[in-house]
Simulated assay, not measured.
Amino acid sequence: MRACLDEAAGLAPPPHEIGFTGGEPFANRDITGMIEDALARGFRVLVLTNAMAPLDHHRARLLGLRAMFPGRLTLRVSLDHYAPARHEEMRGPRSWAPAVEGLLWLARHGFVVAVAGRTASGEPEAVLRSGYARLFAGLGLELDARDPAALVLFPEMTDDDNVPEISESCWAVLHKRPEQMMCASSRMVVKRKGADRLSVVACTLLPYDPRFDLGPSLAAAARRVPLNHRHCANFCVLGGGSCSASRNDGG
């Protein structure tokens, strides 16, 4: 990963943000070392986490990183719904309390935090944001639920192939721009089990589809990505989803 970070630092312009996702990133015993490597090169870092037991094992190291790189490390905690019962329908029983405790620990210790929710309940966005606002107020969290960077609401990804194809003419109809999509400015680097090298793929949603494997280097992966996967339509273009730390802001 250090070689990949060195290549990233040499790009013109270099990325400003390195994200870590999973699964649960803190289940990787080397995660804090990788975070430090990214921070030490001047990047901002975003980690997507459930803030549960795996994170607990890294608390002391995280406190050290926060002290060394103040304000440059953001942890986005997954709370799938503002109501505990609805969250546990999606995450499993007894998952709410430890996630909230982990989120509060991060906030109390001065980390930059955000929350990721889901739209699976079918409620309008305004209702969801109001629900999370009440939750944040009750927990004493200084998070603005109206801010799409502080509260990211991810659209659902389905296995239904019956989604519209995204063509050139769609942009004017949807009042969007191609450069707003994650794959216009971001790439995902994966190391698959058993592989002898890293792979650069188009985005975090498509790590396993060989059509979106762009090769072993960031330079080779710097090309256009066709929006011909169902997730391109239902998550990014129509759903308005983005996995970076701020809306329409590639990493």
Rank of each mutant, 00 (worst) to 15 (best):
L238K: 00
S246K: 14
L214D: 07
F212A: 09
R224F: 00
L227N: 12
G241F: 13
G239A: 11
Y208W: 13
P210Y: 05
C236A: 11
S242Y: 15
C203T: 07
A222E: 11
G241M: 05
A202M: 02
A222R: 15
L218E: 10
S199N: 04
R224E: 11
S246H: 14
G241Y: 13
S242R: 05
C232R: 06
R247S: 11
C232L: 11
T204W: 03
C232A: 09
L205T: 02
L206N: 03
C236D: 09
V237L: 11
C232D: 06
T204C: 01
S242C: 15
G239M: 11
S199M: 09
S217I: 01
A220S: 14
D213Q: 05
P210N: 08
R223I: 04
A202V: 01
L227R: 11
L227Y: 08
C243R: 08
L218V: 05
V225C: 12
P216W: 11
C236N: 02
P210C: 03
R224D: 12
Y208C: 05
S242Q: 03
L238D: 02
V237Y: 09
L205W: 01
L206A: 03
A233F: 08
R230E: 03
L238C: 03
G241N: 12
D213C: 09
R230V: 05
V200R: 07
V201Y: 07
P226A: 15
P210E: 13
A233H: 07
R247M: 10
N234T: 04
V237A: 08
C243Q: 06
A219Q: 15
V225G: 11
C243E: 10
G241P: 01
H229Q: 12
S242W: 13
V201P: 03
D209V: 06
L205F: 09
P210G: 05
R230I: 01
V201S: 06
S217P: 06
L206G: 04
A222Q: 12
L214R: 03
P207C: 07
L238Q: 00
L238R: 10
G241T: 05
S242N: 15
C236K: 04
R224T: 08
V237N: 09
C203W: 02
H229S: 15
L205I: 02
S199A: 15
H231K: 04
H231D: 06
A220Q: 15
T204S: 07
S242F: 11
S199G: 02
R224Y: 00
V237E: 02
G240R: 05
S244C: 14
F212G: 06
S199P: 04
C203A: 07
R223V: 13
V201I: 12
C243V: 04
P216Y: 08
G240A: 09
V200N: 01
A219Y: 02
L238A: 10
L238E: 04
S246D: 14
R211N: 08
D209C: 02
C232F: 15
N228F: 06
L214M: 13
R230N: 04
G240Y: 07
S199L: 10
Y208S: 15
F212I: 07
N234V: 06
A233L: 05
V225N: 10
V225E: 09
A221D: 00
F235P: 03
